[in-house]
Simulated assay, not measured.
Amino acid sequence: MRTALRTAVATALFAGLAVTPALAGTAFAADGPATTAGTAAPTAPKTDAPKKDEPKKDEPKKDDQKPAPKGGTVLSGPTVDGCTVTETIASVFPDWTVTLTNDAERGPKAVVKDEHGKVVATADRVHPADIGNGIKIKDVDTATAVFGQHTNGGDTAPYLWTGFPKLPKGCLTPSTPEPDGGTVLSGPTVHGCTVTEVIASSYGGGWTVTLTNDAKKGPKAVLKDEHGKVLETVDRAHPGPTGLGQKIVRAGTLTARYGQHTNGGDTAPYLWTGFPKLPKSCVSKPTTPTTPATTAPTTHGGQTGVVPKGGVAAGAEFGSVEQSNDTALLASAAGAVVVVAGLGFTALRRRATTRG
């Protein structure tokens, strides 16, 4: 009896040990592959997660990533040198710059440079646009000139406009429009019998014409560029027209006039300007021509004599050779009459003697 009980307990113990591994495998099947007894499960390698506040070594800090300046942004200046003010701005092309210069005499100027400082394009008062490079200056003859730039090419694309730096108050600003051709800029200046006057050229851009009126040499006009370089000259000997549209009319008179135009040829309409007048003391009055001496008949005692007039009247004498000849002729005639009368008396006396 006791032996049978021990056998039953042992059998139940072994049966429980056999069922336990199967239940364990079923319960943990969802967590991973089953492992056999005596085999260790593999473990994942440990990694150190980066800290949130520590930046990565290969990424630059946000402060080092500065955006490129926008076109028109002032990079340096303005720098004042007398009546010339310079300022550098960013170009619409990356890393390029534009130097803006405002000069009281020459007006605004813009110079575009690449990243190496090489000049790429220029615009100024004389040549206010470079459409191929996308730059131009508007209102070049005013105090509010502005510089325009774009990257699309052509002249229809929208421009980015930037004003030129302002000139100091004491400088002559280009607020007054450029004088029209023929406007007197200086003079007249008198030196003896030579009068000089400077007028604006119809070409603009600071070009001038010096008009000189000389009592002996006549009128003369000299065309000069903005730097004072002589481009053309017309005078009494060479009145034109010239290739740059200059000529003088009535060059041999006191009312000579200077004509100029920019269209070329001689058919275009001219802008006319009179030469400065000479002083009154230098203008010679026309001389009265000397008339030859004339004679008029004059009667003296029944005789007709000729009395000279004019410059020889003071030396006139009535007892002239011609008058003496006339007197001799009359005396001869009277003698002839006496002779004829004597002959007639003799003939009559002979006839009376014969009858008696």
Rank of each mutant, 00 (worst) to 15 (best):
V198D: 06
V198F: 14
I199M: 01
I199R: 04
A200K: 06
S202Q: 03
Y203F: 15
Y203A: 08
G204Y: 11
G204F: 14
G204L: 05
G205F: 01
G206I: 04
T208F: 05
V209L: 00
T210W: 04
L211Y: 02
T212N: 01
A215S: 15
K216T: 12
G218E: 04
P219A: 07
P219Y: 07
P219I: 14
A221M: 02
V222K: 02
K224S: 07
K224T: 09
D225H: 04
L231R: 07
E232C: 00
H238N: 04
G240P: 07
T242V: 15
G243R: 08
G245L: 10
V249N: 09
R250A: 15
A251Y: 09
A251G: 08
T253R: 10
T253Q: 11
T253C: 10
T255R: 13
T255I: 15
A256T: 10
R257T: 06
Q260A: 15
Q260W: 00
H261V: 05
H261R: 03
N263S: 15
G264Y: 10
T267R: 02
A268Q: 11
P269I: 13
P269K: 14
P269L: 08
P269Q: 11
P269S: 13
W272N: 03
W272F: 10
P279V: 13
P279I: 15
S281D: 09
C282Y: 11
C282E: 07
S284L: 14
S284Y: 12
P286V: 15
T288C: 02
T288K: 05
P289Y: 14
P289D: 10
T294L: 11
T295S: 10
A296N: 05
P297I: 07
T298L: 12
T298Y: 12
H300Y: 13
G301L: 01
G301A: 03
G302E: 04
G302N: 08
Q303F: 15
Q303W: 14
Q303I: 13
G305P: 00
G305S: 08
V307W: 02
P308R: 03
P308Y: 12
